[in-house]
Simulated assay, not measured.
Amino acid sequence: MHPQPLVSVVIPCYNQEKYLKETVESVLKSSYTSFEILIVNDGSTDHSLALAQNLADQHSSICVLSFENGGVAKARNLGIQAAKGSYILPLDGDDLIHENYIEEAVKILEQKPSSKVVYCQAVKFNEQGQKPWKLKPYSRYQLARDNMIFVAALFRKSDWEKVGGFSEDMKMGREDWEFWIKMLKDGGEVYQLPFVGFYYRLTPTSKRKKTGTSQKKRERIAYLNAKHNDFFQEQLNGPLRIQRTWSKPYNTLMRWLGLL
């Protein structure tokens, strides 16, 4: 029988001792059995490292790496670099996955060599309850305007290598969006599984809140335009604008007026 390919679940962790065990347990419950878990301690100042090492002592599939704080993109890259699996699943240290997610995603990656990214439907949750995360359907045009693929998607390690990993100099948030642009701008299929397989935890200190300011947004758009001008020209007829949904009509008008 064909052996199951190894999946490396890379969990960057910065001060997430409160949630880390639950995150790891959601992976350990997977119906898919050929996986390793790499917990990357990103210079935590709480008890995350001790907790991670305790989990590794109990489960041979868990490996702990520990570094000075360098940010989530660097932590992910260090984990993926050390990963032995041909398939990668980045999972933040406070989020959860469904037990069938990895198994169903691997089936797609194995059956469809043209598929580059497999993700699923998702919910956002906290102590008060949960609500569906309404994600737009994927297309490269939509990806040019906004990100609809959360970071906890499965992809090939070889594709991560080809694009040079997550951009560690992108400190203003949404580095997963830039990573998907890099990986998908020259093509490749994206497949969304038809069930809820990912649970995104809303916390008072979540990075998404800290990086949602208008200043961060301006920095992010300038960064993306500088790095992926070719992609935005192709998809939006010009640069990504602050009012992102208006980028293409605005650029098209500016071209018609001879101002672009």
Rank of each mutant, 00 (worst) to 15 (best):
L6A: 00
V7S: 04
V7Q: 00
V9R: 05
I11K: 03
C13E: 11
N15K: 12
E17N: 09
Y19A: 09
Y19E: 11
L20K: 06
K21N: 07
L28W: 09
L28N: 08
L28G: 07
S30Q: 10
S30M: 10
E36A: 02
E36C: 03
I39E: 02
D42Y: 11
G43M: 00
T45G: 09
T45S: 14
D46A: 01
L49H: 12
A52D: 11
Q53C: 13
N54S: 15
Q58L: 10
H59R: 10
F67Y: 10
F67K: 02
E68T: 07
E68K: 05
A73D: 10
R76D: 01
I80L: 07
A83W: 00
K84Q: 11
Y87N: 04
P90H: 09
L91K: 12
G93E: 07
L96K: 13
E99L: 14
N100A: 12
I102E: 10
I102F: 09
A105S: 06
A105D: 06
L109V: 04
L109Q: 02
L109P: 04
E110L: 06
S114V: 01
K116H: 12
K116R: 14
K116D: 03
K116T: 02
V117D: 03
V117E: 03
V117G: 02
V118W: 07
Y119L: 13
Q121V: 07
V123W: 13
K124D: 14
F125W: 12
N126Y: 13
E127R: 13
W133Q: 15
P137H: 09
Y138C: 06
Y138W: 12
Y141G: 06
D146T: 15
M148H: 13
A152M: 14
L154S: 08
D159K: 01
E161I: 08
E161Y: 04
K162S: 07
F166G: 03
E168V: 15
D169F: 03
G173Q: 05
G173A: 13
F179C: 08
I181F: 12
K182E: 12
M183Q: 06
L184R: 04
G188D: 08
V190A: 00
V190C: 05
L193T: 14
P194A: 13
V196Q: 13
V196S: 11
F198E: 15
L202A: 15
P204I: 05
T205E: 15
T205F: 10
S206A: 14
K207M: 14
T213E: 03
K217G: 01
A222G: 05
A226C: 03
H228I: 05
Q235T: 05
N237M: 04
G238I: 01
G238V: 02
G238Y: 01
L240D: 00
L240P: 02
Q243A: 14
R244E: 11
T245E: 11
T245W: 15
W246G: 01
K248Q: 05
W256I: 05
L257E: 09
L259P: 02
L259I: 06
L260S: 06
